[in-house]
């Protein structure tokens, strides 16, 4: 039986900023129901990789294709991708609800009021939905940012440090939510410095070092053993 068509496939991605090469020939295949946790030291190219996968940045060479053969830069294909960056993508002077309504309008979503209310309720922010986001705490802001990134129910979730700023119950809730997304057949790429947060629901683990994979494969059985060999992988 042929392998299931990937939701997203990146081949030979390189990206240079002047003389600096941030990515050097990175491949990634993300199938339905797969979650790739990506770790790596600062400056390894993790955020650049996510931006290229999301279609926000052109690779210098190589290409990214979605399941229908389109690139993520195609306006119609962008509907299938959700990106959570380390910036919130929110407008400080709009309320959480207004931010979600605006996102919903850009994505042409129906039943926007109910959808935004549901997303805010799931984020545990129903009581603060009508406060300007500048008045929210770091953790609350992160929860609104996650709600914004997932509002259009994308097939492919690209998450850059999604657990940053979250308190313990919120982080646990997010882990459960992401596990459910994966089980529903969505594909996830999670960039994180704290692999333990994503270990429970990750199907694959990648370590990016100096712009290329030091390791990429199915998740090993033991996090402790993996972490024991992590520094060696990064330094190799």
């Amino acid at each position: 039986m042929p392998p299931e068509a990937p939701l997203l496939e990146a081949r030979g991605i390189t990206r240079a900023f002047g003389a600096q090469r941030a990515l050097r020939g990175v491949d990634l295949r993300l199938g339905p129901g797969e979650a790739v946790a990506v770790a790596g030291p600062n400056g390894a190219g993790k955020t650049t990789l996510l931006r290229i996968l999301a279609g926000l940045m052109r690779p210098t060479t190589g290409e990214v294709r979605l399941a229908d053969g389109r690139t993520p830069r195609d306006p119609a294909a962008r509907r299938r991708v959700g990106l959570l960056s380390h910036q919130s993508f929110l407008y400080d002077d709009l309320t959480a609800r207004e931010n979600l309504h605006f996102t919903g309008r850009l994505y042409g979503l129906g039943d926007l009021a109910a959808r935004a209310s549901r997303a805010l309720e799931e984020a545990g922010l129903a009581a603060r939905a009508d406060d300007p986001v500048r008045q929210l705490s770091r953790g609350m802001l992160q929860r609104v940012a996650i709600a914004r990134a997932l509002l259009h129910e994308p097939d492919i979730l690209l998450l850059d440090e999604p657990f940053t700023g979250l308190d313990v119950p919120s982080a646990a809730r997010l882990r459960g939510f992401l596990a459910a997304q994966r089980a529903a057949g969505r594909g996830l790429v999670i960039v994180t410095h704290h692999l333990a947060e994503a270990w429970g629901f990750a199907t694959h683990v990648g370590v990016l070092a100096r712009g290329q994979w030091a390791q990429l494969g199915p998740r090993p059985a033991s996090l402790e053993e993996f972490l024991a060999g992590y520094q060696e992988l990064v330094d190799a």
């Binding site: 999301a54 926000l56 910036q87 993508f89 929110l90 850009l106």
Partner: peptide
């Protein structure tokens, strides 16, 4: 807050 990226996405 990087909202320009959200517009471009």
């Amino acid at each position: 807050q990087g909202a320009i990226d959200a517009l471009l996405l």
